[in-house]
Amino acid sequence: MSLLEINGLTRRFGGLIAVNDFNIDLGEHELVALIGPNGAGKTTVFNLISGFYQPSEGSIKLKGKDTKGLRPHQVTALGVARTFQGIRLWGEMHVLDNIRIAQHYRLGYSLLDCFLRTKNYVHREKAIDAIAWELLEAMDLKDVAYELPRNLPYGVQRRVEIARAMSVKPSLLLLDEPAAGLNSSDVEGLIKLVRWIYDNFPVTIWMIEHQMKVVMSLCTRIKVIDFGTTIADGSPDEIQKNHAVIKAYLGDDTI
């Protein structure tokens, strides 16, 4: 069964069609890219999957379950985690808390447990902590565990955001322009990190990215959209040769 199945997804904002008849079928454990010029509707696709927007038409199925009408946190609970184009960490809470809170959907204790500090509460909080520390360790963020995100360099913030997404234990990880604003050594680090995640977790990674270097060195499949409409879908080699893509990106020398 496919992990994510999108059929005829369309989203309008007033007269503007941000996403038009979008289809995709993602299996378990893939590394896929979504590219397209500015304003093509890429982020909107992610927002639709996250449940932040509801589709105007079409359906999104996660592991066979239609996500229609689900609120974002419910979608996340189904195993979808994401990062944001502009970093959206909780700036006034240290990194460790940022990573703890993203496990909200599987807290596994009630408000009463919290008030009474029951065994279950203590046990669950320990488990949440353990997962957080494990991720911090593995992603080389242990030293900044007690720092506030807003005091960290941009590249580190990106990594924290990815760590936060991973703490959801997602089966689908959506990365919205993870390399945006990074310097070239950070970009190298990011490529390594994404590869490491892909190799170590049973997760499908779907990324929006403008930097072709990142896309080409990581992804096995690329989907290209322009004005909300899919114009190409295939392997990196195929995409590089595709005329429609070259035309959409005309003047853009990154391709």
Partner: peptide, 26 residues
């Protein structure tokens, strides 16, 4: 309440509600 992970969801709402909602905070 405020020192539990559950309660910290409240601060997450104040600092970035959209991120909270999308990162699984009900």
């Amino acid at each position: 309440f405020v020192s539990s992970t559950l309660g910290k969801g409240v601060s997450a709402i104040s600092q970035d509600e959209i991120a909270a909602e999308i990162m699984s905070v009900d």
